[in-house]
Nucleic acid binder design. Structure first.
Lengths: 193, 193
DNA sequence: ACCAATTTGGAACGCTTGTTTCAAATTGGT
DNA sequence: ACCAATTTGAAACAAGCGTTCCAAATTGGT
């Protein structure tokens, strides 16, 4: 049998995530990837097929990790107000800790590519839908426990919360400071009361 | 004296806006611009210097037109709730009428480039600030007229409204339908009550 | 009608893009 | 120790990128 790869595929995929996340698909060149992953061109191409496939794999890995965390948080929610506040705070802390202002890989990709690439549009849409559905379930549960007084539908509120999350991450990517982020989250939370 | 240009610079600039708006900076090639504007390469380069300059001019034109309209609307506001609702509805109508799902040129650009290009970052930041300030003024006025019960600061609310506008346009760019857009706007408006 | 200024068209530039090729190096199994 | 499979490195690929060049065409002013 042959020799084994002397690098870890997933570890490299994580590096690819960060490269694409920072500069987007078009602005990240094959050379950037070779340099950033620290492997040879050949290895890159015979491991990940091509740039687009590597991008797709990167996006899927990101989605599983990040969205997975959020779905868990929502499923374990006991107090919907606290849960949403916690989600907002996590986002704010993460974005403020990121010196590269990367924002959200999923949102960035949606803006850059979802109008021009059907497969990527599907990944983005499926992700949005799963988060939205988890939000609906958590809000519905909170409503039954008397935690939600807002008379609008749970789905409408869920779509609003999701939109606010997107907005926070676009805001962070544009270089806003913590106070702005906190203000947006505070006003959004106020609307749930 | 020499012959005059046989095309209108601003008219062509508007075409450039639409091209960059649709596909973004990196994905719009010089060839796309030549085809889309319908002029020769030479004319393009000796009129607009280069691709980056053309992009910058396009972005500034968009900013003056769109933001100008919004600032006017806000300055003439008599009922802040109605004004915000009207702004949201205009955005929804415009986005739903756009078969190309272009979203907002300013938001798209912020996501694609503002982290990597200082000059463009400045244009985006200045734009955001002017809209935010106009929102603060209009909210402040509404507050004095008893139209705003929300106890949070006018600036916080302004930043939230601006974020919601961004979110609406990212949502539209991702391909969402009218109902989703309307739901987001409805919940956001509820928070002003 | 002519001159001078400017635009125009088309070819060509050098460079970077994403991708492929292939021989050499490496390694596990027998 | 050898074979077979696989990875690796470096060079090369064609295609497309943004940009420049220059001769030809066009036009206003005198």
């Amino acid at each position: 049998m042959p020799r084994k790869k002397d690098f870890d595929e997933d570890e490299l995929l994580e590096k690819a995530v960060n490269l694409f996340w920072k500069k987007g698909y078009h602005a990240t060149s094959a050379q950037d990837l070779v340099d950033g992953l620290g492997i040879n061109r050949s290895s890159l191409y015979n491991t990940y097929t091509d740039k687009r496939t590597l991008f797709t794999k990167s996006l899927k890995m990101y989605q599983q990790q990040r969205t997975g965390l959020m779905l868990n948080t929502l499923q374990q929610s006991q107090d919907i107000g606290e849960t949403i506040k916690q989600i907002f705070n996590n986002i704010i802390d993460e974005d403020m800790a990121d010196t590269m202002q990367k924002g959200c890989f999923m949102v960035n990709t949606a803006v850059e590519l979802s109008g021009q690439d059907q497969e990527i549009n599907n990944i983005v849409s499926a992700n949005n839908q799963s988060v939205e559905d988890a939000l609906v379930a958590a809000i519905e549960k909170g409503r039954q426990n008397g935690q939600v007084l807002n008379p609008l539908t749970s789905r409408a509120i869920a779509q609003f919360i999701f939109a606010t999350i997107s907005a926070l991450r676009v805001t962070a990517r544009s270089g806003a400071g913590r106070q702005v982020m906190q203000n947006i989250a505070d006003v959004a939370l106020y609307s749930l009361k």
